[in-house]
């Protein structure tokens, strides 16, 4: 395709007359723009899909199969490890996706896309909402795919639990993407985020009852205050909503899990709006 060397001589330079009233921004439409962009970008980079789903699924298969005979989760009745480890893997997929997607804030800043958003007349909360909604859509899409694997291990929740599970995944993803956003916003390199991931985010997941049920001592204290615990527990509750399978006795109740996760999502959303609303020279890293 050849490039035109001169501009065509149009009678007018545009249909837009600047003398007309200035545009009226619509925050929800603006958020939709950012969310939709996030999703389109994701679909066009298949390696991200593989990265976010592939690793947890492999872990699930390997750990599950490896510990199958050697580990019996106390108080988990007839569950084998593959089954026990399933909700944790689901949350890990959400966590990975949340992280990979919010890391893109760093890229957006470096590649320049973010600056055009920052000078547009949209409130910062709309920008945050767009980013988190896009990331959440991606996470739920991936988590939802993995969720179907539950059928292969004989877990068959009733229809209403499937629907509730999707809703609960949305809530959990919002909370985790919000957390990722707060951490990524001020960072100037993806490398910096890796440290946060291995020292903070992964331990958060490890101590959530995903790998082993509520331990004793100081680990128990961490597990209790760790909000991710309630995400994993909520998924577990819903997966076995109608089942006779005995769940660990100290597993938090479903309403409590939903309440904690909702609060977690609200707090991280508010924190994201706060960090993104503070204008500094750091916006230009």
């Amino acid at each position: 395709m050849t490039e035109p060397t001169t501009l065509p001589n149009e009678p007018d330079t545009g249909v837009v007359s600047p003398a007309a009233a200035p545009v009226q921004p619509r925050p929800v439409l603006a958020a939709a723009a950012l969310a939709s962009r996030e999703f389109v970008r994701f679909i066009r980079q298949p390696n991200r899909v593989v990265g976010a789903v592939g690793q947890p699924v492999l872990f699930w298969l390997f750990f599950g199969a490896g510990f199958h005979k050697s580990l019996q989760i106390p108080g988990s009745g007839q569950q084998d490890y593959l089954e026990y480890y399933f909700p944790g893997t689901l949350v890990l997929i959400l966590l990975f996706t949340a992280i990979f997607t919010t890391i893109s804030v760093i890229e957006d800043r470096r590649e320049g896309f973010l600056q055009s958003v920052l000078v547009s007349p949209i409130p910062r909360w709309a920008m945050v909402l767009g980013k988190l909604a896009g990331a959440t859509a991606i996470a739920v899409a991936q988590g939802g795919l993995f969720l179907l694997l539950a059928l292969t291990i004989g877990v068959t929740p009733p229809w209403w639990a499937w629907l509730s599970l999707v809703g609960f995944l949305v809530l959990t993803s919002l909370a985790l993407t919000g957390l990722g956003f707060v951490l990524a916003w001020r960072m100037d390199s993806v490398q910096g985020f890796h440290a946060v991931m291995s020292l903070f985010l992964l331990p958060l997941w490890l101590l959530s009852g995903a790998l082993f049920p509520n331990p004793a001592g100081w680990l128990a204290a961490i597990t209790t205050v760790n909000p991710v615990t309630y995400a994993v527990a909520g998924v577990r509750r819903l997966l076995y909503a109608d089942s006779t399978v005995a769940l660990p006795a100290d597993l938090p109740s479903l309403p409590w899990c939903v309440a904690v996760t909702a609060a977690f999502a609200l707090v991280t959303f508010a924190a994201s709006c706060k960090v993104a609303g503070t204008r500094t020279t750091g916006d230009l890293l």
């Binding site: 545009v23 723009a33 389109v40 896309f113 600056q115 055009s116």
Partner: peptide
Amino acid sequence: RIGVVFQAPSLDKKLTVAENLKYQGWLYG
């Protein structure tokens, strides 16, 4: 009331030209 062209490109390279404009339009209502 302002339009800004930055020194560093602000287009999303993974999106088409039309998509870039569409999202920009949404940002401005």
